[in-house]
């Protein structure tokens, strides 16, 4: 491993390889075998596995624990951390703990609002926002200081990720926000799932114009559609998702039994197009509860073998 790289993911990105990461949602229970099974499906097919933090505000095994479990298997986890459930004290404490367990990648997020989840009667925290979180992790890493300015006896060295959604409004502010996240300390960016390629290209164009792609690695988010129902649901019900009507129609135009294959075909076309966009450093494949398809998609996209680190 390159001695200056904090993590394997960083090494792949710095090496110039088109990176591939995938998602792993921890189970709604304490069974680590579920995590291990998902991990085995991803092994060798991806550079890193992104572990969600109570996504959609539904209680699951913690991101830190599931990430540590994947790490024990020899995989490279990216631990997600949201501001919804922890105040700044807990965030810093968990980052120290995560580093102590061997985790080296973090994705800093605000978090889905709890009103989407299974416990909408809960209180949220949002003590700090994702921008503050990014800067906090960077200060802990680079200056070895916690938020009070206290000198930590060992700095947690994390490769810092942040999210960007080119499809949310107001569009004109999206690149300014990306610039702010980079300025705050983001090393890599993971985008929302891309279906509206025109809008994504426009956003990338604006990012290049601002010189942002020189400063950050952008992992383009892709999610294969399983059915037209899923496409419609995601477009209308999932926050920040934009699926063009023509994509929905394409999913609707094939017989039901071929819909999944069509979804994968669309996904492969998207990946091919993304590889040609200047400034896109890799993909983040979110095959939601469909991890068994990741190997097939990555292979069909000619992205195997993955580089060793």
């Amino acid at each position: 491993m390159n001695s200056t790289s904090i993590s394997g993911l960083q090494q792949v990105l710095e090496g110039g390889d088109f990176a591939v990461t995938a998602e792993c949602g921890p189970p709604r229970g304490a069974n680590t075998q579920v995590v291990q099974k998902k991990g085995e499906l991803l092994r060798g097919n991806v550079d890193a596995v992104n572990v969600t933090d109570n996504q959609t505000a539904i209680v699951r095994m913690s991101s830190i624990a599931a990430s540590a479990s994947l790490l024990q298997m020899g995989l490279e986890p990216v631990m997600q951390m949201v501001c919804r459930d922890r105040n700044r004290i807990a965030l810093q404490s968990d980052i120290l703990g995560a580093y102590a367990l061997g985790l080296r990648n973090i994705l800093c997020l605000s978090g889905d609002h709890q009103s989407f989840g299974s416990q909408p009667d809960s209180m949220n925290v949002f003590d700090i926002d994702s921008m503050n979180l990014i800067r906090m992790v960077r200060t802990m890493r680079d200056d070895g200081l916690d938020m009070s300015g206290f000198k930590l006896d060992q700095a947690p060295r994390m490769f810092i990720g942040a999210a960007a959604n080119p499809f949310a409004d107001p569009f004109e502010y999206r690149v300014i926000r990306l610039a702010k996240k980079i300025e705050a300390g983001a090393d890599f960016i993971q985008t929302q799932c891309i279906y509206n390629m025109d809008r994504f290209k426009e956003w990338m164009h604006m990012a290049r114009e601002e010189g942002l792609t020189e400063k950050v690695y952008i992992l383009a988010g892709v999610t294969p559609l399983k059915s037209v129902g899923m496409a419609r649901f995601m477009d209308s019900k999932v926050a920040g998702m934009d699926i063009p009507e023509e994509t929905i129609q394409r999913m609707a135009s094939v017989p039901k039994e071929n819909a999944a294959a069509e979804g994968i075909k669309i996904c492969l076309e998207t990946i091919a197009e993304l590889r040609d966009i200047q400034g896109v450093s890799g993909i983040h494949l979110m095959a939601i509860e469909w991890e068994e398809k990741v190997a097939e998609i990555i292979e069909a996209a000619n992205l195997l073998p993955r580089p060793a680190f």
């Binding site: 501001c83 919804r84 605000s110 978090g111 889905d112 609002h113 009103s115 989407f116 949220n124 949002f126 926002d129 994702s130 921008m131 503050n132 999210a163 960007a164 959604n165 499809f167 949310a168 409004d169 107001p170 502010y173 300014i176 926000r177 702010k180 929302q192 926050a239 920040g240």
Partner: peptide, 21 residues
């Protein structure tokens, strides 16, 4: 802002409306 964000809108802002409703 439903998430008390101080540094710009989250990814759930669409058509001028908040992701919660």
């Amino acid at each position: 802002c439903s998430k008390k964000l101080l540094n710009g809108p989250c990814g759930g802002s669409r058509d001028g409306k908040c992701e919660i409703s």
